[in-house]
C-alpha cells in the first residue's frame, strides 16, 4: 500500500445556497511539494483554502491529512496539526509588536523542541528578514513587510503545510521577486510543503511543481506549469471561448 499524501481533499464541496463555490474538488499535496492553485476571480480558490484550514465546514467531501480525516475540526486545531494559512488581506495584530505577533504564532503548533516561543520568533524573524523591525508595530511596515510578517507568524508555528493566499500579489515587482525567493527558501530550507493561490503568473509558474486550475468551483486542469498553460480549457477560462483557437496563452 502506498503512503497516503500529506494533504488531500476528496470530492470536497461547499455550496452557498444554490451557488456551488467549490464543487467536488480532488487535490493532493506531497511532502516537500509546492502546489499552485490558479483560476479566474470567483473560481472558489479562497473558499477551498477555508475548507482545508477549517474556517468553514464542507457541504460534502472530506479533507485528509496523511490519510486521516480532518474536515470539521475548528481552525485552531488544524493549526496545531500543522496546517497553517495566510490571508489575502494581511491581518497582523496591530496592538502587538512585530516580534510579539510572531511569538503568538510560536506558542502553538506542531513543534516539539525546547526553544521558547520568543527564541523561535526571533529565529523566524531573522529568516524572513524582519529582525531589525522586531520591536516596531506592524503599522510601520510596508505592505511587503507586513506580508513577510504574515509569513513569519505562520512559520513560527512550524507548519507541515503552509497555505499562502496571494502573498505576492499587490507588491512592487522587486519585492515580488524577493517574496518568491523567500517562498522557495521556505520549502527548500525548512521543508514545508506549500499550497499557494497566486495571480502573479510568472511567480506561480516558476515556483510551483504542479498547478491546479479552478473555474466556477470545479477543478478543470492539473499538471506541470507548462502543461497547464497550454491546456485549451485553462486558456478558455481566463480569456474566453475562441481564445484558445487563436493561440493565446494566459498572461
Amino acid at each position: 500500500m502506498t503512503k497516503p499524501p500529506l494533504l488531500a481533499t476528496r470530492a470536497v464541496s461547499k455550496h452557498f445556497g444554490g451557488l456551488k463555490a467549490v464543487d467536488e474538488v480532488d487535490l493532493e499535496l506531497a511532502q516537500g511539494e509546492i502546489l499552485g492553485v490558479i483560476g479566474p476571480n470567483g473560481a472558489g480558490k479562497t473558499t477551498l483554502f477555508s475548507l482545508i484550514a477549517g474556517s468553514i465546514q464542507p457541504t460534502s467531501g472530506e479533507v485528509l491529512m496523511r490519510g486521516h480525516e480532518v474536515s470539521g475540526r475548528p481552525a485552531y486545531r488544524l493549526v496545531r496539526a500543522g496546517v497553517v494559512r495566510t490571508h489575502q488581506l494581511v491581518r497582523p495584530f496591530p496592538n502587538l509588536t512585530v516580534a510579539e505577533n510572531v511569538t503568538v504564532g510560536a506558542i502553538h503548533g506542531a513543534w516539539r523542541d525546547e526553544a521558547s516561543p520568543r527564541a523561535r520568533a526571533a529565529e523566524v524573524l531573522e529568516f524572513v528578514g524582519l529582525a531589525e523591525r522586531a520591536n516596531e508595530l506592524p503599522g510601520t511596515l510596508t505592505l511587503a513587510g507586513r506580508k513577510r510578517l504574515e509569513l513569519a507568524r505562520a512559520l513560527a508555528i512550524v507548519p507541515l503545510v503552509l497555505m499562502l493566499d496571494e502573498v505576492i500579489a499587490g507588491v512592487n515587482p522587486v519585492e515580488a521577486m524577493k517574496l518568491a525567493a523567500l517562498i522557495r527558501r521556505i520549502r527548500d530550507e525548512r521543508g514545508v510543503s506549500i499550497v499557494m493561490i497566486e495571480h502573479v503568473m510568472p511567480a506561480v509558474m516558476s515556483l510551483s511543481d504542479r498547478i491546479a486550475v479552478l473555474d466556477h468551483g470545479k477543478k478543470i486542469a492539473e499538471g506541470k506549469p507548462a502543461e497547464v498553460a497550454a491546456n485549451p480549457l485553462v486558456v478558455e477560462a481566463y480569456l474566453g471561448k475562441g481564445a484558445a483557437e487563436e493561440g493565446a496563452t494566459p498572461a
Binding site: 484550514a53 485552531y76 497553517v84 494559512r85 491581518r91 506558542i107 502553538h108 508555528i157
Partner: peptide, 11 residues
C-alpha cells in the same frame, strides 16, 4: 485584535 486571525495561529 482579531479573533479569526488568532484562531489562524492556533489560539
Amino acid at each position: 485584535a482579531d479573533v479569526d486571525a488568532a484562531a489562524d495561529v492556533g489560539v
